[in-house]
Design a protein around this nucleic acid. Structure first.
Lengths: 111, 111
DNA sequence: AAAAAGTACTTTGAATGGCAAAGTACGCAA
DNA sequence: TTGCGTACTTTGCCATTCAAAGTACTTTTT
């Protein structure tokens, strides 16, 4: 356990500060291969935006693309790398540490 | 249960897409009153930056300030509102739904 | 053959967000 | 009176994010 953190948010990964990137990672951790159009549909964003976020994750080596043809059509699918899996796990662990400052929301009185 | 969401990230709150804001909320849910300098110390950021993030949360009515004097010195402490508590809970629920697409990281083979 | 549509992008340009550093206002302490 | 602590705001810059349009290639439709 590496507890050399100077602050409580130090373990959080900047790349995962964004919902779209969070969504991409979650999807890729469930189904090890998800293609461009599935991501686009599930996330409900434009292809340009999706391409940008994918690029960021690819540059961090958290995900990789596989380009192939399915029948006659081009198809690009993505999968998470070992590094991506690890980075995401670390992020979630940090998040959990942050949140189990609070374990359960107390019923709270007058506000 | 309101399941009228068109995409998997729709329940996530934009305001909580940021680690600092996430940290502030977590702290305020643990200790119902936390002052400016405690936040600053725990988050490890400058006062200007902290003030900005606090302002965003105040404008959303997720937190409120209490200004008083402790002894001779001014002291501003913050507490989370009912709306803030609810919004944060919703965000965490959405996050959990997103992540329990994946429940446990499977041991995964060749990469 | 020409037009439309699909796939997976890139580019553009504008808006928004994030930052450190400096400045401010107040009272208190030396 | 000079400086310190508290809690900001302002400034000016840089990075990020976005929708929309453009691109290149292929397939499908007409």
């Amino acid at each position: 356990m590496q507890e050399h953190k100077k602050n409580i948010i130090g373990g959080l990964n900047k790349l995962f500060d964004h919902r779209v990137r969070l969504g991409i990672m979650a999807m890729l951790l469930v189904s090890e291969r998800v293609d461009f159009n599935q991501l686009k549909a599930q996330l409900g964003i434009t292809d340009g935006r999706l391409a940008g976020h994918i690029k960021a994750l690819e540059e961090a080596k958290y995900i990789e693309a596989l380009k192939q043809f399915i029948g006659k059509r081009p198809n690009t699918s993505y999968h998470v790398t070992g590094a991506g899996r690890e980075a995401f796990k670390e992020h979630l662990d940090a998040l959990e540490r942050l949140l189990t400052l609070r374990d359960n929301l107390p019923p709270r009185e007058g506000d």
